[in-house]
Design a binder for these strands. Sequence first.
DNA 1: ACAAGATATATCGACTCCGAGGTAGAAGAC
DNA 2: GTCTTCTACCTCGGAGTCGATATATCTTGT
Lengths: 184, 184
Amino acid sequence: MAILGFLRDFPLHGYDLKNRVASLAGHVRPIADGTLYPTIKKLEDAQCLTRRTAPGSVAAPRHMLEITQIGTDQLRRWLRDPEPGFVTDDNKWYVLLAFLHHLENPREQALVLARRREFLDQPAQLFFDEQGAPIPAERLESPFRKGLMQIHRSTNLTEIDWLDRQIVDLNRRAGFSVRQHDGV
Amino acid sequence: MAILGFLRDFPLHGYDLKNRVASLAGHVRPIADGTLYPTIKKLEDAQCLTRRTAPGSVAAPRHMLEITQIGTDQLRRWLRDPEPGFVTDDNKWYVLLAFLHHLENPREQALVLARRREFLDQPAQLFFDEQGAPIPAERLESPFRKGLMQIHRSTNLTEIDWLDRQIVDLNRRAGFSVRQHDGV
DNA sequence: ACAAGATATATCGACTCCGAGGTAGAAGAC
DNA sequence: GTCTTCTACCTCGGAGTCGATATATCTTGT
């Protein structure tokens, strides 16, 4: 998804893609060659991108990659209806967020944000005692577990706050465009 | 690591472990059976844990798992000198944090927190233009990317704040115990 | 002229993990 | 009685990823 998302911005070659993806995922951890190039080939076979050999500006010849209409459609499908992991896994969610603007329709964007919002609303219960009963943060003996829950709560609130403001904003914009479209 | 960490608290059987690990990793996403049971067997072969068959309280017989001295040592080694991924990947870091109290020595605990602190200090540059120059958050056109960087910065500050307080606290405690030990 | 090093693409084997499926025992439904 | 459901454990195949390795090209230093 990140590959198509970056290509949607402008054409790139594999080596450049590698660095851009690396700075996004996790943080800074580079994507291995053995992952990138087979994936590019797979996307090419699926006609999601085209390849044009260009002389390397600095060194060996590059394969400039360009996204196709099929690729754009595929990207939008992934964004519009993300797999559960993309909502519940922080790293994946951030990747999705980085490309959500390619899903042009503000109402659809708001729906995706709402799914994340819903997920964050679930109360986090991380630790349980021998009987399986949840242990509240104040009862935890380990200061690290206490901090873990504190940080978790605090960062969740930050994100929820941002999500709510975005969702309102997007729906307002969607409302305007509907009214314009209806001629009201 | 999570398996040994939980067992260090008290003996558990596989099914129970599964649920406890699930509520920690990512969030709530259950660990697959196909991952858990082979891993338990691997740890047993490495003599990190022992297995005792007990009648199931509700259904089929359980295998109660108990951590051994070898397992405890292994756990402490992992905690003391974590692989890079455990410092740079949020999910893995949280798992590590959940069991860091098993690394009893406050000075060693502080060192691990310091590694995370150092990682968080690196300025995050997530997006680049066609020429490869970094784009500051204010210049980003996508509100999602802007929010992404805002949230990233805000949550980092929260965690850094907590880390600093913990590190000071742990070093203070380490200092006391050294002085006590020296008879000062 | 030639070696060294950065750029750039590609492949292979090993490893991890998951999901689907299977076994089996006990409790509760009808 | 037997059927379903929940608990509990286990295995296999496939998908995905990584690290090592190989290759080609261009620049720079000597």
